[in-house]
Amino acid sequence: MSQVGLHHYLVVSALLFSIGLLGVIIRRNVLVIYLSLELMLNAANLALVAFSRFNNNLNGQLIVFFIITVAASEVAVGLALIVALYRKRQTTHVEDLATMRN
């Protein structure tokens, strides 16, 4: 445990990913679920950058670059969907969006 190495970063990444996953499971607000998804994406980014650094390989960083781009477009479309949904149903709560169930 002397020097901070790859596994330290990976543990942080894994913990952050778990936090994001927990957020997706326990929260009921679509917007917060979305924020948790961003947390998970960020955790993946951290793991990739750490791998890239400790394997002397730039490919990891380039993948992070693409992930950030895709995440940005995902947020744009996702938020547009949420706004459209809110216009129709006046809610962002997932439990109110259960018309398919009954």
Partner: peptide, 27 residues
């Protein structure tokens, strides 16, 4: 559920083959 998943991931990480794979990162 999430704590279970996290402990599996981290436990695997600790034993993983890539732990301390590069001594001196230069990138």
């Amino acid at each position: 559920a999430v704590v279970a998943i996290a402990s599996v991931i981290i436990g695997r990480l600790w034993k993983g083959p890539f732990v301390n794979s590069v001594d001196q990162p230069t990138m």
